[in-house]
Structures are given as structure tokens and as C-alpha cells.
Computed example of a mutant assay.
Amino acid sequence: MSSESAGSLFKTPGLAYAGLVLTPLFWAGNAVVARGTVESIPPLSMAFWRWVIALAILLPFGLPGIWRHRQIIRQRLGSMLALATFSVGAFNSLLYLAATSTTATNIALINATIPIFVALMSWLLLGDRTRPLQALGIALAVFGILTVVARGELAVLTGLQAQPGDLIMVAAVFSWGLFSVLLRRQAVPLPPLTFLTTQILLGALVILPFYLTDLMLFSGGFHLTGKTALPLLYFAVFPGILAYAFWNHGVHTVGPPRAAIFMYLTPVFASILAGIFLNESLGLFHVAGGLLILAGLLLATRAGRTAAPHKPG
């Protein structure tokens, strides 16, 4: 096959849609695998080594771009460090920490509200106009989050008895919302691969002191075996590198509005995978909260669909 025909193959909508289906599957797997292995691998170890492995894979391809654009990186180092802190550094570290005390289904449902948090932070920090339908969508999604966090019981909220993992996951999506707003305000003119490689490098450096503190004073790390190496490889390759590549390819091929619809598959895949591999069951509060979140997402993204929201890698 010639390079020209191979290039046209990659631009076909069918391949793009296949990638957009796999991407939420990989994101769902991130929550399920984290929940299933968090007792074997401490959360900060999970986050740190995930990005070290991803960096080792990407660096041979991304290093030439980093060298070519070193002047821009040096000039915008402060902005890039802030972006890396909220995305690579904070988001997945908090997600893996949440996995110690909540279910994979809850993680995926709360994670699905990222577009809502992006819209909310854009309104609060950038002054973006919020249409009535978008505001209604945000409100419905927030009620959906509260339903999941409260497990359908008002007393859980009024008595401050929410699971810590649910609240940590809310902090994670809040962090990603901040990252998305900063990415718009402080856009860095770098090619995608150069930007991603630099972000992973800086993010791993941000996690490093926290990982070392946890290693020496708290968790003691983990033993590298087949049982622990495979999840780390999964985190690095599938929800990291491949999901990022598939998502961006899908957005560029079929357009942001159509691509955004596939994000709604993440909690669906997560509930199926969690039921199969973790024996998690769906409660009525999951269904009610999920429907509120879905309705909120549909309203918010339809009312303000100018671009597909950035998603975690």
C-alpha cells in the first residue's frame, strides 16, 4: 500500500468512528483497572509510573520537536508548568486516589461531567456567555453528581457522610476544568506531539516529590510483578497515548460536535466492565444520577457546541 493510499485510509470516517468508540472504552478501563489494582499499587505510584512509561514511549518521537521548539518552551515554561500541574499532575493522581474509596462506576459518572465543569469554569473565569439551556444543563448535571455522591439519600449530604473518593473525584474534574480554561487563556503554539511530550515530562516532575514522600513515609511503594506491570502498561498506552491520538483524530475527521457525543459512552462502558470484573452493581441512584448527568450534558453541549471539550489522556 502506498503512503498516499494509507494516508487516505486514516482520513476515512469509519476509522475515526472506530477510534471514537475505543476512546471512551479506554477511559472507562482506566477507572475499572485503577479500582481493581489500587490495593496492589498505591495511587501516587500508579500516577507517577504511568506517566514515566508513557514518556519513555513518546520521548524518541517527541524529543526532536522539543529541541526545535525549545525557545518557545523556555519562554512559556510557567504556563506549561501550570497546565501540566492541573492535567497530568493532578487529574489522574486524584482519580487514582479516588479509586481507594469509591467505585469505578461512580468515578466514571463523575468523570463524565468534565464538559459541565469546563463550561462552568469558562463562565466564571473567562466570562463566556452562558445560554439559558446551557445553564439548565449545568444545573441538571450538578444535581446528577449530588445524587451519585449522596447515593440517593439526602441525609448523606446534610450529614456530611459522602464517600471521600466521590469528593476527590469532583476535585479531579474541577482540576481538569481549570486546565481547559488555562489552555484557552494561555495557548502555547506547539505541535500536538511536542506539547503532549512536554506536558508529560513536566507533569511527571510535578508528581515526583509527592511520589517520593509517599514512597518513603507512607505506602512504601509496590513490588513489580506481572500483576502490577500490566496495569501500568495499560494506563500508559491505552487511556494515555492511544486515547489521546484517537480522540484528536476523531475530532479532526468528523468534527467536534459529533465527537463529543461519544464521551457519553464512558460511564456506560465503565458500568459494564465494573460489573464483569469487579462485581459492582448498579443502584437506582446510579440510574437517576446518570440520567440527570446525561440530560445535563446533552443540553449544555447542544447549547454551547463550538468545540469539543478537552479530555484527559
Results as ranks from 00 to 15, higher is better:
residue 1 M to L: 12
residue 1 M to T: 11
residue 4 E to F: 14
residue 4 E to I: 14
residue 5 S to N: 12
residue 10 F to G: 13
residue 14 G to Y: 04
residue 14 G to H: 06
residue 15 L to V: 12
residue 16 A to K: 01
residue 21 V to A: 13
residue 22 L to F: 09
residue 23 T to R: 00
residue 23 T to H: 02
residue 25 L to I: 04
residue 28 A to R: 00
residue 29 G to D: 06
residue 30 N to L: 06
residue 31 A to Q: 07
residue 31 A to H: 09
residue 34 A to S: 11
residue 36 G to S: 15
residue 36 G to N: 08
residue 37 T to A: 14
residue 37 T to P: 06
residue 38 V to L: 09
residue 42 P to I: 10
residue 44 L to F: 09
residue 51 W to A: 04
residue 53 I to A: 13
residue 55 L to K: 08
residue 59 L to E: 09
residue 60 P to W: 12
residue 64 P to Q: 15
residue 69 H to T: 07
residue 71 Q to L: 12
residue 72 I to Y: 08
residue 74 R to F: 13
residue 74 R to D: 11
residue 78 G to F: 06
residue 82 A to I: 00
residue 82 A to Q: 12
residue 83 L to V: 05
residue 85 T to D: 07
residue 85 T to H: 07
residue 86 F to N: 08
residue 92 N to M: 01
residue 94 L to E: 07
residue 99 A to Y: 02
residue 99 A to Q: 03
residue 100 T to A: 14
residue 102 T to C: 14
residue 103 T to G: 03
residue 103 T to N: 07
residue 106 N to Y: 09
residue 109 L to T: 04
residue 110 I to Q: 02
residue 115 P to K: 02
residue 119 A to I: 06
residue 120 L to E: 04
residue 122 S to E: 08
residue 126 L to C: 11
residue 129 R to L: 15
residue 130 T to P: 10
residue 145 I to V: 14
residue 146 L to K: 02
residue 153 E to G: 06
residue 155 A to N: 13
residue 156 V to F: 05
residue 157 L to M: 11
residue 159 G to Y: 03
residue 161 Q to G: 15
residue 165 G to F: 01
residue 169 M to T: 00
residue 170 V to G: 04
residue 174 F to P: 04
residue 175 S to I: 00
residue 175 S to C: 09
residue 175 S to V: 04
residue 176 W to G: 01
residue 176 W to Q: 01
residue 180 S to P: 01
residue 181 V to P: 05
residue 183 L to H: 12
residue 184 R to T: 04
residue 184 R to V: 02
residue 190 L to E: 15
residue 192 P to M: 13
residue 193 L to E: 04
residue 194 T to P: 01
residue 197 T to S: 13
residue 197 T to R: 09
residue 197 T to Q: 10
residue 198 T to Y: 09
residue 199 Q to L: 03
residue 200 I to D: 10
residue 200 I to V: 13
residue 203 G to Y: 03
residue 205 L to M: 15
residue 208 L to C: 09
residue 212 L to Y: 11
residue 213 T to M: 15
residue 214 D to V: 00
residue 218 F to K: 13
residue 222 F to Q: 05
residue 223 H to D: 14
residue 225 T to D: 09
residue 225 T to R: 14
residue 228 T to A: 11
residue 228 T to F: 14
residue 228 T to M: 12
residue 229 A to Y: 14
residue 230 L to W: 09
residue 233 L to R: 02
residue 234 Y to P: 05
residue 234 Y to N: 10
residue 237 V to C: 10
residue 238 F to I: 05
residue 241 I to Y: 08
residue 242 L to N: 06
residue 242 L to G: 06
residue 244 Y to M: 00
residue 248 N to L: 11
residue 249 H to S: 15
residue 250 G to F: 02
residue 260 A to N: 05
residue 262 F to W: 08
residue 264 Y to I: 00
residue 267 P to D: 01
residue 270 A to D: 01
residue 270 A to F: 02
residue 274 A to H: 02
residue 277 F to M: 05
residue 280 E to N: 02
residue 281 S to Y: 00
residue 290 G to L: 01
residue 297 L to F: 04
residue 298 L to C: 13
residue 298 L to N: 12
residue 299 L to C: 10
residue 300 A to F: 10
residue 303 A to R: 09
residue 306 T to H: 12
residue 309 P to T: 05
residue 309 P to I: 05
